[in-house]
């Protein structure tokens, strides 16, 4: 293959990872933005989404597409319910103290991993794609499903954007983000907002995982990489900025796709990890964020 088509293929692959990453990272970023806490269990909500998707598609009789649609609805719901339960039972009792929440969500992550290991097992299992037609480009054929993932992720992200900017719930969330006490004074039930946001964040991670499950596989340790990459995206995008997060996801996803074609993956990961750490050290407001006072 010539370089041109090769780059085109790498770009497509990069767009797929960017789409999945954007969904996951927006979930993490939303939680950080509104609640000012870092959810270390975010990767495990991602994993939960994929594992539940496997269970649903295997339990549903009939066409695989039907099972997949059911998974797309049920997985995020399951993750969101677990997250809301965790918020009520643990995070609220900690009064959302940042460092305590970090320790607690590390613990939560281990519990979710154990749950998956005990109930689902240590194997990596594939989830059947809802359809399998290929789109034929002049140089190569490409999975129609992967293109559908990009489109679907874009739709969900647009939905999140509309929810945040065009609805009353979004307004309430933004008000809580600005100032929790004032929001409370204006009669906003911030406890419910927090539970909702935490659930929504987990649901977005699970959605991303359902989309990615037919491409990679579902495994109980699959949450580690999405967590680190989401950290990277949220940090580089400027903590708490939806637009920055999406741009950073595109940047990192595309770089990942393209660099992965040319470099050893481990070396690429090392450099990327160090780069993100240095961004956080020297530009804590992110590459796109603006310095606040």
């Amino acid at each position: 293959m010539d370089l041109g088509p090769f780059l085109f293929l790498a770009t497509l692959e990069g767009l797929v990872s960017a789409a999945v990453l954007a969904l996951t990272a927006v979930g993490l970023g939303l939680v950080f933005g509104v609640m000012r806490v870092v959810n270390v269990a975010h990767g495990e909500f991602f994993m939960l989404g994929a594992v539940v998707a496997w269970a649903v598609t295997n339990l549903m009789p009939g066409a695989p597409a039907l099972g997949f649609v059911a998974a797309l609805a049920l997985s995020p719901l399951a993750a969101a319910l677990v997250a809301i339960a965790a918020d009520r039972a643990i995070l609220r009792r900690l009064d959302y103290a940042p460092e305590a929440v970090i320790v607690a969500t590390i613990g939560l992550g281990y519990i979710l991993q154990q749950g998956a290991l005990s109930l689902y097992g240590p194997e990596a299992r594939a989830v059947a794609a809802p359809f399998s037609f290929r789109i034929q480009f002049p140089w190569f054929g490409y999975s129609g499903y992967k293109l559908a993932v990009i489109v679907f992720a874009a739709l969900v992200l647009t939905g999140v954007w509309a929810l945040l900017t065009r609805t009353k719930i979004g307004l309430v969330m933004r008000a809580t983000q600005w100032d929790r006490e004032t929001a409370t004074a204006f009669g906003i039930d911030t406890d419910r907002v927090y539970a909702l946001v935490f659930g929504l964040g987990a649901g977005l991670a699970a959605t991303a995982a359902v989309l990615v499950a037919p491409i990679s596989q579902a495994h109980y340790l699959m949450g580690g990489d999405p967590l680190l990459l989401s950290f990277a995206v949220v940090i580089i995008g400027g903590l708490g900025s939806l637009r920055g997060t999406v741009i950073a996801a595109l940047l990192i996803g595309l770089t990942d796709g393209i660099v992965g074609v040319f470099f050893a993956p481990t070396l690429g990961k090392i450099l990327a990890t160090l780069l993100v750490a240095l961004v956080l050290v020297f530009r804590p407001q992110g590459l796109f964020g603006r310095k606040t006072a």
Partner: peptide
């Protein structure tokens, strides 16, 4: 893993 996770949560709570 459950023991480790539960211990962390119970301690911090």
């Amino acid at each position: 893993l459950f023991v480790v996770g539960a211990a962390l949560i119970l301690l911090i709570l």
